[in-house]
Computed example of a mutant assay.
Amino acid sequence: MSSLIFPPYVEKGDRVIILSPSSKIDKSFLKGAKKRLKSWGLEVVVEKHAGSANGTYAGSIKQRTEDLQNALDDEKAKVILCSRGGYGAVHLVDKLDFTLFRRHPKWLIGFSDITALHNVIQQNGFASLHAPMARHLTVEPDEDFCTSALKDILFGHFQPETADAVQTSKEGFSYVCSGHKLNRKGTAKGILRGGNLSVFYGLRGTPYDIPAEGTILFIEDVGERPHAVERMIYNLKLGGILERLSGLIIGQFTEYEENRSLGKDLYGAIADLVKEYSYPVCFDFPVGHVTMNLPMINGAEVTLETGRKEVKLSYTIQTLT
């Protein structure tokens, strides 16, 4: 087991590129994100089509691909911030050239639909950041926990100003969260991978699917009906993914009606699907379409310790560049 290659940490004066690879965005959030990132001492470049619109998308496929390719190729950039998710990143995954990116790797930031791009980045051997995007950086205050955590990871500090849920050490840092009655106790090491379940599911069986062996998988989703979530997790079960994992983190499933159509609540249905496996399983982890959306380093080596009262997700940083 080995972590993926980490892009360099940023320093003041480094370049961040903001772009919109999926749905169109309110331009006020582009301005807000730019302001927040500049306050960190970073140079901020907003790509040409970041504020464009083509139907529900932030520009045509050609325009969005052009912006992302330009960002991947930029030798001075250290970070690519995706402004929002929605839908549309899948249009770009097979159109990208990583030749220059491999020489000058950079952090890709985003979640939701950006899961598709995380998978592509990982397929090319690099870690990336499943983390809040432009709206969060615009509307949340300076002391927001997830904003501080994102900043500290990017700068390699690992000491968020609000440390209620973080422990730091010479070896790395840990998120410490409340437990859940459905948690399966245990400890496991693995490579952290995951993101939005629907997007992850849509790439199953493609070159951009993620490997199951040695993976601690985290999943979240928004607006999906319980039976649709169950169907997707059955796919992971029947496809042999679940049995090969090292651990499983169930994040936030939001904006759906808990109508107990499955005969139980959603978490209960998921718990039944994974009860035969021996690895640790964590429920209600703070990641997803919520304000408390902890930055997760896709491709990092982690240790997951789950209990009924507490969950600890620890990142190892000795190998970071």
Rank of each mutant, 00 (worst) to 15 (best):
A163S: 14
L117R: 06
D209W: 08
H180L: 12
L217K: 04
P132R: 09
A163F: 07
D164V: 11
E140C: 09
S148W: 06
R102H: 14
L217N: 01
F173S: 09
S128R: 02
R135T: 14
S174Q: 05
D164Y: 13
S178K: 15
S112Y: 04
L117E: 08
T147V: 14
K185A: 14
W107E: 09
N124W: 12
D152A: 07
V199D: 05
L154H: 07
G190R: 01
K151W: 04
V166H: 01
R135D: 07
R102A: 12
A134I: 09
D142C: 02
I109T: 12
H180Q: 09
T168L: 06
L154D: 10
W107D: 11
D142R: 10
L203E: 04
Q167D: 13
D164A: 14
V120C: 01
V120G: 02
L108Q: 10
F101Y: 15
K189N: 14
A116T: 06
T115L: 04
G214A: 06
T168N: 12
T215N: 02
L192R: 04
L197N: 07
F101K: 05
V139I: 15
R102C: 09
L192G: 01
I153R: 05
G214F: 02
L117N: 06
G156T: 12
H157D: 10
S128V: 04
A163I: 07
S174R: 03
A149F: 02
A134Y: 02
G125R: 06
T99M: 05
I191K: 10
H118M: 10
A165E: 10
N119V: 01
S178L: 12
L137Q: 06
R184K: 15
W107T: 12
K95R: 15
D144K: 05
S148G: 15
D142F: 11
R102W: 01
G179E: 06
G195N: 07
P211G: 04
L96G: 02
N124R: 13
D152G: 06
I121E: 00
F200M: 13
A212S: 13
L129C: 06
T215Q: 03
F101G: 05
F155G: 12
R102P: 00
Q123E: 11
G179C: 11
A149K: 00
E140D: 11
K170W: 03
S178C: 09
L217V: 04
R204I: 12
G172F: 08
T138P: 00
R135E: 14
